[in-house]
Simulated assay, not measured.
Amino acid sequence: MTGDRPAPVGMPHTRSSLAVDLRDLGVRPGGTLLVHATLRSVGRVLGDSRAVVEALLDVLGPDGTLVVPTHTPHNTDPASWINPPVFERHWPAIREQMPPFDPVISPSRWMGALAEQVRTWPGAMRSNHPQVSFAALGPAAEAIVGGHARTAMLGETSPLARLYERDADVLLLGAGHGSNTSLHLAEYRQPAPPTERVGSAVRAAGGGQEFVWWTDVVLDESDFERLGAEFDGTGAVRTGRVGNAACRLMRQRAAVDFAVDWITRNR
């Protein structure tokens, strides 16, 4: 029935309109930008995630570098799985048969459509960490994602530390501080952070698969929203909208330095 047709809506967001929003928010041409995005919050976009990536690249320009998290949290020890857990008797078989991480073909999980769009973009580079890889586009991509050591996975040998050195910005595009991965770098900068044994499937030296273990810092984002709310209150965060999405833009160094002190005082 024609009377059941939805009411028409306005013009969708476009590559050019999103670029205007990003410039107004303060994204720096020629800068390095780590983006955490929930594209659903942006609203209807002509071109979907492709148009959002193109808008980001338009604003960053040829000298800028775009970085996204492309983590693979499913490539972990089944003993730690809780959603849902698996019987202990299955753990050895899962470890033996889990596909090894491959930076070219392993999809990210729970990182969103933007991260996957960047990961598969022509010319994108991805770090070789089996759990917490990052992908980057731009002239600084190799310097940021190269040499991502397995241990201290979000610490001083990670892309997060390379971003800190480059005075990068962080854009939370419709996402909250709970997704602000850079705050984990502050956990590594505590005097004696708690550690745990973690494992992942990787490619063996002679081909095939092996499950490897290492000791790393216990990552805990449970208080990042509270931490972030206090950081917002310092005035160091720019807020605005990109499309329909509420956004925060900040210098990564400022956020990490604040978090180092906050975690020291509050944990």
Rank of each mutant, 00 (worst) to 15 (best):
H74L: 14
L56M: 07
P85R: 06
V67A: 01
A79C: 06
V104H: 09
H71A: 11
S80H: 09
E54F: 06
W91Y: 14
V67H: 03
D102R: 00
G64R: 01
L60P: 03
H71Q: 09
P73Q: 08
W81Q: 13
L56R: 03
V68A: 02
S80N: 12
F87L: 15
V67S: 03
I82W: 13
T70K: 00
T65E: 03
P103D: 03
P100W: 02
P103E: 01
F101Y: 15
T70C: 12
V86Y: 08
H74Y: 15
L56Y: 06
P85K: 10
P85S: 15
H74Q: 14
P103L: 06
R109Y: 09
T76F: 01
F87I: 13
E54R: 15
P103A: 09
P78Q: 05
M98S: 09
P85Q: 13
D58G: 09
L60M: 12
E88W: 04
D63L: 09
Q97A: 15
L57S: 09
P84I: 14
N75P: 04
E54H: 14
P100K: 06
P103G: 11
T72D: 04
P85A: 14
P92M: 11
V104L: 11
N75W: 01
S106E: 01
P85F: 11
M98Y: 01
D102E: 12
T76Y: 01
N75G: 02
D58K: 07
L56P: 04
V59R: 07
I94P: 06
